[in-house]
Design a protein around this nucleic acid. Structure first.
Lengths: 142, 142
DNA sequence: CCGGATCCCCAGAGATACTG
DNA sequence: CAGTATCTCTGGGGATCCGG
């Protein structure tokens, strides 16, 4: 539990939860998880498969996951050094929650995009000209 | 890549999922959700209950949630303006996934903290045990 | 009461070069 | 191969003032 000595801390406050969200919410963490879900991967393999990640970010992400006990790092003293990464048992427990969030995405992300278009459209309309009443059939499902 | 309009993002890549994560992962979004889960709240009420949030951040967060169709904003033309916010039906569908992540937190966050201490401890030990290098023991903890 | 507009600052992400 | 080190620079977030 978070320290009650913290100022502004409320027992009900989800700041604890928010910090946990940071574990999964960072940009590359999710992508790394997706790769490691399939099994151990080497650093170069991850680098190759995760489009657009820099060494710095990949290393940083992996270090954080290692520190959090979600990923295990193994170094093999081969001639050109070899390192591979694996999800720990703790890391595996996060897969299901992530899947659920993923499923939410697939089920509702279209609605989010649609809501955005509607919202932006409303803004544009209001911006361009301000009629007393919008005559457009507003498909506001809520 | 974070931005939708940015070139070089693939529709099939989990970046789609990542973008969806952004919907919930931002610092204040979760806290707003926690408040609205209990029912409609007014702006000032949210501001008062969410410790440490600035007007800018609160407004920004609410705007984004509104744009994403997760929150409904209602303005009442009372003498001092009154505005309140409510979760939409779409917003309500997100509660369950968030709860599951929350539950993961409660079940495993101790393990994460423990892993961190172990990791940091190992680093300190490795630092101290290396006499050839700097023996200045800088005990910097989390 | 609600929130837009503005200035400022610094953590963090990218790029590049170097090392064990 | 698998990182570390350093530099730069952007933009997210805080603070403050102002407007509806």
């Amino acid at each position: 539990m978070p320290h009650p000595s913290q100022p502004g801390y409320e027992p009900e406050s989800p700041c604890h939860y928010r910090r946990a969200l940071e574990v999964v919410s960072s940009k590359w963490t999710v992508l790394v998880f997706y790769e490691l879900e399939e099994g151990s991967k080497r650093y170069s393999e991850l680098k190759k498969r995760i489009e657009g990640v820099t060494q710095k970010m990949l290393t940083q992400t992996l270090r954080q996951l290692e520190r959090d006990g979600l990923v295990k790092r193994c170094v093999y003293p081969t001639v050109p050094q070899t390192v591979d990464y694996t999800l720990t048992t703790l890391g595996l427990t996060l897969i299901e929650p992530m899947r659920i969030l993923h499923r939410w995405t697939e089920a509702h992300y279209d609605s989010v995009l649609q809501a955005r278009r509607a919202y932006d459209g409303r803004l544009d309309a209001a911006d361009g000209a301000e009629p007393d009443l919008a005559d457009a059939a507003n498909s506001d499902s809520d």
